[in-house]
Nucleic acid binder design. Sequence first.
DNA 1: CTTATACATAACCTACAGGTTATATAAATC
DNA 2: GATTTATATAACCTGTAGGTTATGTATAAG
Lengths: 120, 120
Amino acid sequence: MYKNQLDLVFSALADPARRGMLEQLAGGESNVGTLAKPHAMSQPAISKHLRVLERAGLIQRTRRGREHRIRVDPRPIEAASTWIGHYARFWKQQFDAIDAYLKAHEKDIHTNIQPKELQK
Amino acid sequence: MYKNQLDLVFSALADPARRGMLEQLAGGESNVGTLAKPHAMSQPAISKHLRVLERAGLIQRTRRGREHRIRVDPRPIEAASTWIGHYARFWKQQFDAIDAYLKAHEKDIHTNIQPKELQK
DNA sequence: CTTATACATAACCTACAGGTTATATAAATC
DNA sequence: GATTTATATAACCTGTAGGTTATGTATAAG
């Protein structure tokens, strides 16, 4: 199946081990062994997680001898942040508006009188 | 397996059909049938997607007769937005800093002279 | 040259995601 | 009361996610 960038980024972020690795990489460039240490799993499992992050475009890899240097690429995560941030703000605003509305009509609700905007 | 809130939210967002439903819900409260229409899949498939969104806390449901009214709950998406936004900003800043650094040392690079910060 | 290190790849297993069709349930309509 | 409408649930299938162990490969160190 063909997955787009957002699909890949969000599903990469859905695993705590992978989010952990990204957090580790916030401290700067690293390598596979160092990234593996805090995680209680085999080395091939780490390799798989890194490949998922790489396919989502979230990390980039350069070989330096037998070592693989890993660093974050901030661009796809920024795209995801834009998507999610847009809706987060929009819904928060909606939510706050409803909240304010409910507060304004508190008396009506308590007296079981429905403001006509909500009547069918 | 036990999944935390962030896991559930990100994996819920990883499917384009579910993101589509959330976008539909940005236009306001809706019901299952209406949410189903734009998606080329069976009604049970829609029900499953809605259950995933519900378990992630992204939507709330109230029964009104035989109809289920669905609306967004902005709180979990805001949590996800916070996580992702934090790192997005951080990495963008890192990225821009590296970019600026590279620009500042452009001549050194072109002449193959390595600034001593990068020497092994 | 031999051994150790840092990784990837292969083969395998189990669980679950995401779709299907068929059926159930509850409410609305005729 | 019978039918239609709105939805859920069950049973099933296929593919893939995420883990394992075993093995391969290239580079570094002794």
